[in-house]
């Protein structure tokens, strides 16, 4: 077979090879994104995602969406502009959550015996679906950044409330009021995580009474818009093809 001849001999064979190529690429993309996104999220979101007693209404709501919109934006840029595939955000978050769950179950529970109800990851899939659908319907990076980034930030807290809400039930413990999440953090000893490094309920946002989460979510959403732009361009650059002339 010469270089000018086709590697396949029929249309049916071409379709089969193409599909096989699809599965290979999808498989590789899933695991590569899982690995990269997971490391990135653990380094930047870290404790806010690890522990229920870090999932507060101020800093977790602000930090987690901002650091999490990165890879979805980049993967979207690649899959949409080169293939018109609108599942970049969802595939990235599916990868991240699989990695997080494997980590939480095998490491946090399997090795160190922290109960899973204390170390579950944050929920990002509703935000990811919104991001993908907005990109698909508008076909515009700017619109996706503004509307999608906003939706990404705003949906985060309500998406997670079904799981963290029950842990915010108050309890009186030896004369002090704590949430069940606080009590988990106190009971399940973390030798390397003293209470003072827990960054919750800090800041100067005190003029909204108890309704802090929506304000934090709006701030997070605004910053998510900016981060979306930035990482979208990373994705575009990363998936671009350059041909150079042979010397």
């Amino acid at each position: 077979m010469s270089a000018s001849q086709s590697a396949v001999r029929s249309r049916a064979e071409a379709v089969k090879v193409s599909r096989m190529f699809d599965w290979f690429i999808l498989w590789a993309v899933f695991w590569v994104v899982l690995g990269g996104y997971h490391i990135h999220y653990m380094l930047t979101g870290g404790d806010w995602d690890f522990w229920s007693d870090w999932k507060d209404r101020r800093l977790w709501v602000t930090v987690a969406p901002i650091v999490a919109i990165t890879f979805p934006a980049a993967v979207q840029a690649c899959l949409w502009y080169r293939y018109r595939l609108p599942f970049g955000a969802v595939v990235a978050v599916l990868g991240l959550l699989l990695g997080e769950w494997v980590n939480r179950y095998l490491n946090f529970w399997g090795w160190t015996y922290f109960p899973v109800n204390f170390v579950f990851p944050s929920q990002l899939l509703p935000s990811a679906i919104a991001l993908d659908v907005i990109l698909m319907l508008t076909g515009s990076m700017t619109a996706t950044a503004v509307l999608g980034g906003m939706a990404w930030g705003l949906l985060f807290y309500p998406s997670n409330w079904a799981v963290i809400g029950p842990l915010h039930v108050p309890v009186e413990y030896n004369g002090m009021v704590m949430t069940l999440a606080d009590l988990q953090g106190y009971h399940y000893v973390r030798t390397g995580t003293p209470e003072y490094i827990r960054m919750v309920e800090k800041g100067t946002l005190r003029t909204f009474g108890k309704d802090v989460a929506p304000v934090s979510a709006f701030f997070s959403a605004f910053v998510s818009i900016i981060i979306y732009f930035l990482w979208h361009f990373f994705g575009r650059w990363f998936s671009s093809t350059e041909f150079v002339k042979a010397a």
Binding site: W161, P166, H168, P170
Partner: peptide
Amino acid sequence: SMTEEQYPVTVPLQA
């Protein structure tokens, strides 16, 4: 809404 209905009394994390 279901969570709010089932757990009407919640408080923020204490620190």
